[in-house]
Design a binder for these strands. Structure first.
Length: 493
RNA sequence: CGGGGAGUAGCGCAGCCCGGUAGCGCACUUGACUGGGGGUCAAGUGGUCGCGGGUUCAAAUCCCGCCUCCCCGACCA
């Protein structure tokens, strides 16, 4: 049906990429179009099971590298724990299993004749229940603590409704699990990781976030408290971009993970767990994208600079190629991930292609540029063509990429502040979310029944995070009693 | 998991009601002209009609079951 509909495009020069549904027309369709056409991921034929394509995986790889470096720096070690969890392990921590039971997939048969297993095995939805009983072997003494483990893997949660990257039945993530000799130390660990997550979101993905504690209803099953990183997407919905849990001794008690302290007394460990997932790739799409497709923060971009040669025949091609060869090594020297697009396509196709893929900077290079000793630079945000001399181009581009990273963050930060409000009553909140999205700060008494009322009365609005830094004075926006904490509300994915 | 819609070439669709052995656009391949924002022409390739069963001389088309996808709701990193 597209052919006729697309005709009525306004003749803005902005309207470069034509194969993606406009964000303003239908955000969900826009998202799906971008993810698929930018070749990030696809569905696989088994419901809810995603195939992550190289370009999408490269984004995840950048995140993995950044985070892996952070946790290695603070002494964490990567492990590999089993995919399948015996039922009895899974069942030990009551709240945990109650929370996860609805979405666990079970292996009940195996072998050529599909014999029924004596004991069903759960496909891990998260690994607390397998790491607990295994890790205790390695923890005897306070000298064995802290035990700081992490694993990069995939987990399965039998979701009923799926969206690429945001909610699939299998997703890839890291799950950190740490064990400590004191509550204080474990809580500090959860805080430390929250800081890392904030850095991943803001410094790497260029997505500004709110951080804080989850309300009881949103706390991880089995946790004492859950810390969260919440970003705002361009449709006004919030997205949880990472969580860090403090377990107290809950899991240690369930699995008897204990150590001999300095007084030679037996004591239960304090533990944490924390995770970020391929969901962040979706966050990147929804936080920065526009009607032309992705906009990639340079630090994550699989390709930071793309060079589009422009030529008409072998002779001019050779000329352009020689020209590019004279300065492109400078990009490598400057540590810039770049690629020359020699594909047999027309320049306009290539422009649209790389814009869809969100490459931060494009260099158009033709014979005229070779003669002038310059290139034509276009960045994905401003989309203005600027002549750039090739002398010092490596440094210049490195600088442009830094500036781009910052511009992208500032743009997202402005968007966040423009869509953050302060309200005082439930009526105001309900009215607000009927009209628009965004974050709404208010204050709350902390009672569970009030939290439940928000969700029903305000149509899916939830407490995203509790600000523990700021003291509150006002009244609970639901019941009017004195408020205990400042909270951010939003509709969320 | 409830309610609605849909699966025909890589993508988007027509054909189905009224059974007769599959078509259109884009993409793809080859060639020519082209090339600084998505070009033109010509000649081609490509389909177990989602899967399984049934009815029939004959099934994309009719019947039954299943799978998958999309939209809307309840649950969720």
């Amino acid at each position: 049906m597209g052919a006729k509909g697309v005709k009525q495009e306004t003749e803005e020069q902005q309207d470069f990429v034509k194969e993606v549904t406009k964000m303003s027309d239908d955000f969900d369709r826009w998202y799906t179009d971008v993810v698929r056409k930018a070749e990030l991921a696809d569905w696989s034929g088994v419901r809810g099971m995603m195939v992550v394509r190289p370009y999408g995986w490269a984004m995840w790889e950048a995140i993995m590298r950044a985070f892996d470096d952070m946790i290695k720096e603070s002494g964490h070690e990567n492990w590999a724990f089993p995919l399948l969890i015996p039922r009895e392990y899974l069942m030990k921590e009551a709240e945990h299993i109650e929370g996860f039971a609805p979405e666990v997939a079970w292996v009940t048969r195996a072998g050529g004749s599909m014999e029924e297993l004596e004991e069903p095995l759960a496909v891990r939805p998260t690994s607390e229940t397998i790491i607990g009983p295994l890790i205790k072997r390695y923890i005897q003494s306070h000298r064995d603590l802290p035990k700081l483990t992490n694993q990069w893997n995939s987990v399965v949660r039998w979701e009923m409704r799926s969206r690429l990257f945001l909610r699939s039945r299998e997703f890839w993530w890291q799950e950190g699990h740490t064990f400590h000799a004191s509550a204080d130390e474990a809580m500090q660990e959860a805080d430390l990781i929250l800081g890392y997550y904030r850095s991943i979101a803001e410094d790497w993905l260029a997505v500004p976030v709110l951080t804080g504690r989850k309300s009881p209803a949103e706390t991880f099953p089995g946790a004492v408290h859950t810390l969260t990183v919440e970003g705002l997407m361009r449709d006004g919905l919030a997205l949880q971009m990472g969580t860090s849990h403090y377990f107290g001794q809950n899991f240690a008690r369930a699995y008897d993970i204990s150590f001999s302290n300095r007084e030679n007394a037996r004591e239960l460990c304090y533990s944490t767990s924390w995770g970020i997932s391929t969901r962040l790739v979706g966050a990147l799409v929804m936080a920065h994208g526009d009607d032309s497709g992705l906009i990639m923060p340079p630090k994550i971009a699989p390709i930071q600079v793309v060079i589009v040669p422009i030529f008409r025949d072998d002779e001019s091609r050779t000329k352009v190629e020689r020209f590019i060869d004279t300065w492109s090594p400078n990009l490598r020297a400057a540590g810039i991930r770049h690629r020359v697009d020699w594909r047999d396509e027309r320049p306009g196709d290539k422009y649209a292609h790389w814009e869809l893929k969100g490459v931060p900077i494009r260099l158009n290079v033709g014979g005229r540029d070779a003669d002038a000793g310059q290139v034509e630079m276009v960045d994905r945000l401003a989309r203005q063509k600027v002549g750039v001399p090739i002398s010092g181009i490596g440094k210049r581009l490195a600088h442009e990429l830094d500036a781009f990273q910052k511009k992208l963050f500032d743009r997202a930060l402005n968007y966040q502040s423009d869509n953050t409000y302060q309200l005082e009553t439930l009526d105001q909140v309900v009215a607000h979310f009927r009209e628009r999205g965004g974050f709404v700060w208010t204050q709350w008494c902390g009672e569970g029944e009030e939290e439940a009322r928000i969700k029903t009365d305000a149509g899916g609005v939830t407490i995203r995070t509790i600000d523990e830094e700021t003291k509150v004075s006002g009244r609970c926006f639901v019941c009017g009693r004195p408020a205990k904490s400042r909270v951010a509300l939003a509709k969320a994915y």
